[in-house]
Design a protein around this nucleic acid. Structure first.
Lengths: 190, 190
DNA sequence: TGCATTTGCCTACTCCAGTTAGGCAAATTA
DNA sequence: TAATTTGCCTAACTGGAGTAGGCAAATGCA
């Protein structure tokens, strides 16, 4: 019976593509099996279960995104680094909505701790090297940046900004300017 | 056969409670029926389908949240209004994680347009009356605030801040201070 | 009060996703 | 070429979503 050549990696990669096409929620073993022209049961020698599939897609998306952010931020500092980070993040979400949704997937703490999510936090902190922020303000700022990026992009991809002027790109640019200003003059008074 | 007294409203309310207990994702007709001690099929005279249940829980959560924000913001202005809004939003999410998750549920555009989501946007805009922002900067600021609130609270409830010092409350307070400063000095240069 | 109508929950059923167990044939190794 | 491993299969079970039709409880009306 013609072997298709399934492997965990191929399944996860195809799952990520599938997520971009039909949505992360809809990315299930049954749908993935259909895509490969095999029976659903055949996936279970390569995957523990449906949750395992989603987790692995999530981990892959986090890695990809971290790689791209890392490449974009290298050799940049200050506002330049800030906008590079932010734009890669937003572009990734627009180009790969399913992968981006996967990256928001709630991982159990142990898995999260060994995921590329850690690199994201480190890179956010790296951006702040270009600004003059001592602890604990730096941590507060890291959390603010994470919130703005993930919040804005989630809202935008959900269509929250698509039915009113001005367009989302304009707000994004101005918000990055505002964040740069804010970081340069972070109010350190408790 | 003992009638339990199911109505759409009771089902939605119980669904919201269920979501707070076991998570919005897990809130299904089957689980809800179990909770009422009836057969799943019995729900279908009151609900169209599973998606309809989730949509109605989402709409209810949006209403509740808008009511609470509205009450908190009334009679306040400037930073006072900003923090009142933000704290109600965050407290709601912490106290009602399932409802809050429901409020993020992706509604189809027509439903969203007639939902309390519109009031949220209006109230965010109302807060900015205390700051001096002309259009289109006001819209950009509305989007920033929405992003920060939803982003921060989502990350916090996902546990993203729970394994590092300082604690989330401290960051929240400082971020609100920073946003106040930012809004008072919003960089209007394009 | 008695009867007719409406309505609420039930049983029974279909369809489909997830998952496990065990089999057979293709690929791999020796 | 034979032995072994491995990949995908069939078969089966569980459980959720959803539909159709039935019966009894509640309601409306004389």
């Amino acid at each position: 019976m013609a072997r298709v050549g399934l492997t965990p990696q191929r399944l996860v990669r195809a799952g990520a593509d599938l997520a971009d096409e039909i949505g992360f929620e809809q990315t299930t073993p049954a749908e993935l099996a259909r895509r490969f022209g095999v029976k659903t049961a055949s996936l279970y020698s390569h995957l523990k279960n449906a949750h395992d599939l989603k987790t692995k897609i999530a981990l892959m998306a986090l890695e990809e995104l971290a790689d791209q952010v890392s490449a974009a931020v290298a050799g940049r500092a200050g506002k330049d680094a800030l906008t590079a980070f932010a734009n890669v993040y937003r572009d990734y979400a627009i180009k790969h909505p399913g992968r981006f949704a996967a990256a928001q997937f709630r991982l159990d703490p142990e898995t999260a701790a060994t995921s590329a999510g850690v690199r994201h936090a480190q890179m956010t902190r790296a951006i702040l090297r270009g600004y003059d922020l001592a602890e604990p303000h730096q941590t507060h700022a890291v959390r603010l940046l994470g919130s703005v990026f993930s919040g804005y992009v989630s809202l935008e991809t959900a269509g929250a900004f698509s039915h009113s002027a001005p367009d989302a790109q304009e707000s994004w640019t101005e918000i990055l300017n505002a964040l740069d200003t804010l970081l340069r003059t972070w109010p350190t008074a408790s």
